[in-house]
Design a protein around this nucleic acid. Sequence first.
DNA 1: AGCACGCCGACT
DNA 2: GTCGGCGTGCTC
Length: 669
Amino acid sequence: MAEHPAHLAPRGPRPIARVLVDTPLPQLDRLFDYQIPSALADSARPGVRVKVPLKSAGRVLQGYIIEVGEEPDPERVLAEIDTVVSDAVVLPDRLYRLARAVADRAAGSATDVLRLAIPRRMVRAEKAWLSRGGAPEAEPVPDPAEAMAEFPGLAVALAGGERIALDAPPGITGIAPEWARLMAAIAADALRRGTSAIIAVPDHRDLDRLIAAFDGIVPASAVVRLDAEQPAQERYGAYLRTTGDEPCVVIGNRSAVYAPVADLGVLAIWDDGDPLFDEQLAPYVHTRDVALVRQSLDGGALVFCGHTRSSDVERLVAIGFAREIAPARRRSPRVVIAAPQDTPNTGRIPSAAFRSAREALELGPVLVQVARPGYAPTLVCAECRAPARCVPCGGPLHAPARGATPVCGWCARGALGWQCAACEATSVRLASSGSERTADELGRAFPGVRVIVADSAHPVHTIDEAPALVVATRGAEPVAPNGYRAILLLDGERMLQAPELRIGETCLRGWSNAAALAAEGAVTHLVGVTGPVARALATWSQPAYARNELAERAPVKMPPAVRVAVVEGDAPQVERALVRLGTDAAGLAADAVLGPVPLPDASGRKRARALVRFDYARGAAVAGSLRASVVEAAVKSRSRRTRGAAERGRSRTPANTLSVRLDVADPDL
DNA sequence: AGCACGCCGACT
DNA sequence: GTCGGCGTGCTC
């Protein structure tokens, strides 16, 4: 008889638990079977946290029981569950299935996804949850039909569990923007059907606006706030409540899409183009993609609502996967395109806009939106100032040194004999690096006026209705009660020059969101910008702009027309992954792979990065292949690990020698 | 990650 | 002839 370590012993038929172990190692991203000792027979239920030995007694890891069953093979050697951490069911099966599906889509680990979804355990909040009494009687929810009547077909589409691209109305009543009232009505509609709603917004300022709009529409007792800025106890308590059976309205930032409510009536994302929805932790899955996966698993309606439409959502509309719904009565802010040349003695503000602002300042606050300081210097066409792009692959050009031949950031080709795609000029120049403009400058233009500065360093949430010049960076605009009396959008030309794939979308989004803060009839001046983005803002036709964007991305194979994966790590590992991909994902286009390009190697090892462009139909094959490469690289990376242990104390090297990231929004890293 | 198993140089 | 090096593999 083979001998077994003390903690492993074959027994007869016995109850077992299948456990997901909480470890970052990709090769352990699967379920492990453990025997349930009789002492834990009652508490070892699916969804609870446990501690289990792995590979040896004494080494216990955290994990979750995913399911329980019986082991038929009496000879099979199994370890026992060490501890059931608590009785709280923190991982309902539906959340595990979501995490598994999201991880598979992104070539990542379910555990990594769950780390985003489940807050850290807080014992006090957990005890309070476990000893809670019966559910309080649900408050009546007013019928939101009137609020939704403005949107033909919305109520029916929500009840039918459709996917909806919803064009938000601009404007603001009191301190609640119209979009927030619309979201409140959608949440109320779900509650009235006895289901839960999740509303995800980019940041906590939007959250505050949403809460303000809930007044009189969604009962406060039904609202569960779930965001990263909450105290840990409160957050954990809120999370536990979303695991319960009572219908609720979960509002929060990007992790709210994971809230495991039992019966999801609607999942709504406000302003999905906001970069805050781009998850920065592995496996880097965008909130929009999580929402799509979740809706496919759990059903319910899915709503993408914004003043602008992201090219990604437009793609869903274009392929018939989502339906667009717009207000029957079109409302649009008054937008004036102001030429920059028309600036005789008012600095960077055109005279018409200057006059408009001065008059508006008699009535109330005026918003001045300025660029964020410090855009990185990049190369633009010397003639037409369009961002300089690599002719063969369309990547952004960078200047390695002053006067040196520009080099493509994607394919590393030198851009000798470059010619501008827009105007055929042959020389590039450094774009202005963005001098920091100050509120002082504007204060001097409007002497005697109160100036309020709002940026990410000095956030201002709300202001009063008294006259003031509010200077804000894009995205940091406070809400003015009943709207601004005039809005000036400055630095537009410079913002549009940023070398980002989605810069047009980004600018249109920022300007549209600002213009939506205007009072009824107030004018928004867009200064110094012409072209399609300016036209889209002036005509308030953001969906049409998104349509054009999407059409332009297809021929150059840019997201979201295709999906783009970044493969990065030890150069040989990257090569191996690309070879494997060639056999696993048959039919990838010949030009699917860009690179690999060598990366600046910090630790002496040769590192490289490649981009893989693939269509949506091949997503599963590509993700599966890349995942297999990641696992292989993690298992084979002996030398690095032992060396790391030898020189311990130094900066911690990344655990994996190969990392992949699917669905980068903009490959211009 | 940890930890065990396994096959080649200095040692009692 | 044995102790132990760390290369290789597995984790239920």
